[in-house]
């Protein structure tokens, strides 16, 4: 990476849906190697911001740079190879497939095989599949899912499915991992375990994480930096402690909840 540029740099980004302004000139800088929390009341535009970074929604203005690339010139499926991965609030898993197969999907852009290999050059396919399976299994043991590797996702509890999706997002070794409400629906033990896992991925693999969450303790424990959105605007950013004591943030939460 060249120069002091941050891994992800968003300037004055706006998103409109019809007449509704979902994001209003938002700035966001995510430094390489950091864990960055994104918080705000419902309807603040957090998911929209993630969708804009994933190129799933088209911004009406502003700039979006990632690792030296102008992301606005890329199409959604071209983002992953740059090193951006994400999870969804409603889990986009293949219900009938095994945990392992779901995690293998996370290697789609790493996997060198083509449709031609899959159909005709089966020797090459088998070799590549074996390599990819090794990688996926290593990822599964990292998140503690090797036991259920061959179980169809449909049969598993919600927390395990969320971890499967996390493994799928991480297995391709992205530079930036974006998590949309990973703590929703988890109990405190599961949340504790998730925080430890994310901290470890950040420390050992150098993974940069941008995470949306509603849980303040989770944020305080995990994040180095936090950004607060309210009604499509950035109203605060700084360390989690600073943000928590910011009067604007307190008003935003009390005012809307």
């Amino acid at each position: 990476m060249s120069g002091p540029e941050a891994l992800l740099q968003i300037e004055a980004m706006s998103v409109r849906f019809g007449g509704v302004v979902a994001l209003d000139e938002v700035d966001l800088t995510v430094e390489a190697g950091s864990i960055h929390g994104l918080i705000g009341p419902n309807g603040a535009g957090k998911t929209t911001l993630l969708n804009a970074i994933s190129r799933l929604v088209e911004p009406s203005g502003g700039s979006l740079r990632f690792a030296g690339n102008d992301m606005l010139s890329y199409r959604p499926h071209q983002i992953t190879p740059l090193g951006v991965a994400r999870t969804f609030q409603n889990l986009g898993l293949i219900e009938e497939s095994s945990v392992l197969d779901n995690v293998l999907v996370g290697l789609h852009t790493v996997h060198q095989g083509t449709l031609f290999d899959d159909l005709v050059r089966f020797w090459r396919r088998n070799r590549l599949e074996a390599e990819m399976r090794q990688r996926a299994l290593r990822m599964l043991s990292l998140v503690g899912l090797e036991e259920v590797a061959l179980t169809p996702v449909r049969q598993l509890a919600y927390g395990i499915r969320k971890n499967t999706e996390l493994a799928r997002a991480c297995v391709g070794r992205p530079k930036l991992l974006m998590l949309d409400e990973p703590t929703a629906g988890l109990n405190s033990t599961e949340m504790e375990r998730l925080a430890k896992l994310l901290a470890r991925l950040n420390r050992e693999e150098g993974l940069t994480i941008l995470v949306i969450t509603h849980h303040v303790e989770f944020l305080l424990e995990l994040a180095h930096v936090a950004t607060v959105l309210d009604l499509g605007r950035r109203i605060a950013h700084g360390t989690p402690q600073e943000v928590r004591n910011n009067p604007d943030v307190i008003t935003a939460y009390i005012g809307t909840d």
Binding site: S54, L56, P76, H77, Q78, I79, T80, P81, A85, R86, F88, G92, L93, I94, E95, E96, S97, D101, L104, V105, G106, H108, T109, H111, G113, L115, D117, D118, L119, F122, R125, L128, E129, M132, R168
Partner: peptide, 27 residues
Amino acid sequence: SIAHSKSGRALLVVGQNETAARSLGIN
């Protein structure tokens, strides 16, 4: 061959959730 390989998995994700497929880098 297709069902148990990269292409088959990609197609399954496309069928189940196009948004997720896009963000996984699937054309």
